[in-house]
Design a protein around this nucleic acid. Structure first.
Length: 494
RNA sequence: GCCCCCAUCGUCUAGAGGCCUAGGACACCUCCCUUUCACGGAGGCGGCAGGGGUUCGAAUCCCCUUGGGGGUACCA
């Protein structure tokens, strides 16, 4: 194949009929890695032939989030390139011209069948238990009949003549050999709609030819399209690129990820908003169906480029596993330099009333919980007890810890010494708690620490107690909460 | 219905006929670290869909069955 001597050129060709989707992103990742691995070019093109559903807001979203993921293209509608235009709607004339040439060379024909006729055909076929397909009737329309249809005002579409039966096959770079009989393709496929716009399968082939695409890497939902497209390449007298079809991404019920069923969970923007790092998502998407030979799972984009190999991409579908994504994201969050983490985390504090804290204390809070985060949107829930609001101590898990003589004693002792905690760093605060406890017969155990933790946070679990006190000190909240807890447990006693 | 693709722990996978008593990761469980949680460390649970072949030998090759998925538009 001559393509083997050419420089690799691949593309991602989304249609702007929805926000950037996990499946599209994964396909983009594969194409990008393949291009970079082979020192080739990566092209971004818009397949906007569906004028009904296309929307510029979707285009902007797709571009934004592909870039967010760290995927950059060498040519595209936004940056241009020497193989443009990169939007199909700008190539309408071009497609039509090529289709007309196919008609002139008797490889295609005008088909005057109406939507109603086709619907009737389909219905009849279904009623008689036959597979529904176009019956190629338009091939045999006489010149005279055609003129009559024209006179009637019918506007034809253009269909490709497909030889049947015949086997179309290719060696898929992911799946291996695939063969499809032309009889199963549904009849002569439309090339140009009666609206004058090229149909997806035709526009794709023309574009891939125009852009000298050497490798087409896409989802396996395109396998039958590939057979049709190979036929179009042939009719055009051109050689095909190589094809690779990746298995789809499923949900936990093994259903294809879809906007309809999964809503915003398939949108990349959802993950950005929830506080997932692009490197985590990129890493997860890459390793989901691809394993490095040494088994390494955490890797940089550079390492992925170096190792990527389509032959090692799994043939079977993978279930999108949020838990595993969380693991990756936790890893990358922890790996972030403190400054970067703080800057990324700040926006997630906006729904918390933390005005009374100074910048350094805010940063301390964030670093307190950094190691346990799956994503940034978990920050809010984990820091609520720093807000100057009352704490609910009557929860069934919490209350019994306060209602003991020993708890009342330590709370009272802490209150007596509360001023001493001001301006202490956390090791000093820890030493002071221990000193207060030990000199009053406590041991360094739950009995000493848990009532304090519960009084201050209303929770059984959380970061280091002395660090919490350090941040809370100076706000007046330590004293207020110790008093509240003590009063509560004294009330119930009397 | 018809066509195509796929089939190893719950999930993602390693495995290209002997290295497999099937390896790793996530999740889960136990223990350690520790005042709690998280992080980290050490263990554990758990799988070749079924049936026929081929072979001295099969998770690996072939066939059938079953299961899952995708496609069957003048959508992309």
């Amino acid at each position: 194949m001559s393509t083997q001597h050419q420089k690799v050129r691949v593309r991602i060709a989304p249609s702007p009929t929805g926000y950037l989707h996990l499946g599209t992103a994964r396909t983009a990742v594969y194409n990008y890695l393949y291009a970079k691995h082979n020192h080739g070019r990566f092209v971004f093109r818009l397949e906007d032939t569906d004028e009904e559903r296309s929307n510029d807001a979707y285009t902007q979203d797709i571009i934004k989030y592909l870039k967010w993921l760290g995927i950059n293209w060498d040519e595209g509608p936004d940056i241009g390139g020497s193989y443009g235009p990169y939007r199909q709607t700008q190539k309408e004339e071009h497609y039509r011209k090529l289709a007309n040439e196919l008609v002139a060379s008797k490889k295609a024909y005008f088909c005057y069948a109406t939507q109603d006729e086709l619907a009737k055909l389909k219905e009849d076929q279904q009623n008689s238990g036959l597979p529904s397909r176009y019956d190629n009737r338009g091939r045999f329309v006489s010149e005279k009949q055609a003129q009559e249809y024209e006179a009637e005002g019918r506007i034809p579409c253009i269909r490709l003549i497909v030889e049947e039966p015949r086997v179309v096959s290719w060696n898929d770079l992911i799946k291996g050999p695939i063969s499809i009989n032309t009889q199963d393709l549904g009849g002569d496929p439309v090339l140009v709609k009666s609206s004058g716009m090229a149909v997806y399968n035709f526009a794709v082939v023309v574009d891939d030819l125009d852009m000298e695409i050497t490798d087409v890497i896409r989802g396996e939902d395109h396998i039958h399209n590939t057979a049709k497209q190979i036929l179009i390449y042939e009719a055009l007298g051109k050689e095909c690129p190589r094809f690779a079809h990746a298995a789809l991404i499923f949900d936990a019920e093994k259903q294809k990820l879809s906007k309809r069923k999964h809503g915003e969970f398939v949108h990349i923007s959802k993950y950005e908003k929830d506080g997932y790092l692009p490197q985590a998502l990129f890493n997860y998407l890459t390793q989901m169906s691809f394993t490095m030979s040494n088994g390494q799972e955490i890797f940089t984009q550079e390492e992925a480029i170096e190792a990527f190999d389509l032959a090692k991409v799994s043939k079977s579908p993978a279930i999108f596993d949020l838990t595993k994504l969380n693991w990756f994201n936790n890893h990358y969050l922890r790996a972030l330099p403190a400054n970067d983490f703080e800057n990324l985390a700040k926006p997630y504090l906006k729904d918390l009333s933390l005005d009374k804290y100074e910048g350094p204390k805010i940063n301390q809070m964030l670093n307190l919980i950094k190691d346990g985060l799956n994503n940034l949107s978990e920050i809010k829930e984990q820091l609520t007890y720093f807000e100057p609001k009352p704490i609910d101590l009557n929860q069934s898990e919490i209350r019994p810890i306060l209602d003991t003589d020993s708890a009342r004693k330590i709370l009272r002792l802490m209150l007596e010494n509360v001023d001493k905690f001001k301006n202490l760093d956390s090791p000093a605060a820890k030493a002071l708690i221990d000193e207060i406890g030990l000199s009053n017969g406590f041991k360094k155990n739950k009995e000493l620490y848990m009532p304090i933790r519960v009084a201050l946070t209303g929770r059984l679990h959380g970061p280091d107690l002395s660090k919490i006190i350090t941040i809370l000190s100076g706000s007046g909240l330590v004293q207020e909460r110790l008093e509240n807890a003590l009063n509560l447990t004294l009330q119930i006693k009397s």
